[in-house]
Amino acid sequence: MTVHGHSSFAEWHRNGQHASYLRTMKSPGAILDILEIERPAGDMSRPALSDIVLMEDMLGCSRVRGDLGGGRFDVTTRRGTLAIAAPNFATTVINEKRHRLRTLAFPLAQWQHVLDEAADGRFSFDTSCIYGQVFDSWKIRSAVRNLWALCEEEGAPSRLLARAAGCEILAELCRLGGAPFAPAKGGLAPWAQRRCVELMHARLAEDLSLDELAAEAQLSPFHFARMFKQSLGAPPRVYLTRLRVEKACELLEQTDLPITQIAFEVGYSSNQVLARVFLKHMRMNPSDYRRAVREPTRSIA
Rank of each mutant, 00 (worst) to 15 (best):
L232D: 04
S299H: 12
G80R: 06
A202E: 14
K247V: 01
P180Q: 10
M1R: 09
S8T: 14
K97S: 14
S7D: 10
D126V: 08
A189K: 15
R244A: 06
A205V: 01
E216S: 12
T2K: 13
L232V: 09
L213A: 01
S27K: 06
F73V: 03
Q193R: 15
L176G: 05
E117M: 08
E38A: 14
A189P: 04
T92L: 11
S124C: 07
I169R: 06
I262Y: 05
A83L: 05
Q218Y: 07
E206N: 08
F181V: 04
Q230K: 09
N88T: 02
E212K: 09
C61A: 13
L82T: 01
A85P: 00
A217T: 05
D74F: 05
Q218F: 07
F125N: 01
T81A: 15
L251N: 03
F73W: 12
H4D: 15
E153C: 04
E96H: 11
G177L: 00
G69Q: 02
A41D: 12
L101M: 09
P286A: 05
P236L: 11
H281P: 01
D43S: 05
M55Q: 10
E153G: 00
L204A: 04
L279C: 08
E117Y: 02
G66L: 10
L160G: 06
V197P: 06
S137V: 02
L279H: 07
Y131E: 07
C196A: 13
V144P: 01
Q218C: 10
V3W: 12
S220G: 15
G69E: 03
P236W: 07
R102M: 06
H6R: 09
L115I: 04
D116G: 03
R14C: 04
I34G: 00
D116R: 06
L32S: 03
R175K: 04
P40L: 01
K97P: 00
I130V: 15
V144R: 02
K139W: 07
N15A: 10
A162P: 05
P296K: 05
E168V: 11
W148R: 11
T81V: 02
G121Y: 07
E96K: 10
T77Q: 06
S270Q: 04
M200P: 11
G166L: 11
P236I: 04
G121Q: 02
R194F: 10
F181S: 11
A217I: 02
K26H: 15
C167Q: 12
A143G: 00
T92H: 13
V64H: 07
A109R: 09
R242T: 09
S299I: 07
A90G: 15
E36H: 07
D43Y: 08
C61T: 12
L188N: 08
Q218P: 00
P40F: 00
G267K: 03
S7Q: 09
V134C: 11
R98V: 11
R63S: 08
E212W: 02
Q193A: 15
G186P: 06
P87K: 02
H201L: 13
M25L: 14
W12G: 05
R46K: 11
P107R: 01
V134A: 13
G155F: 02
W148N: 12
L199A: 14
M282K: 15
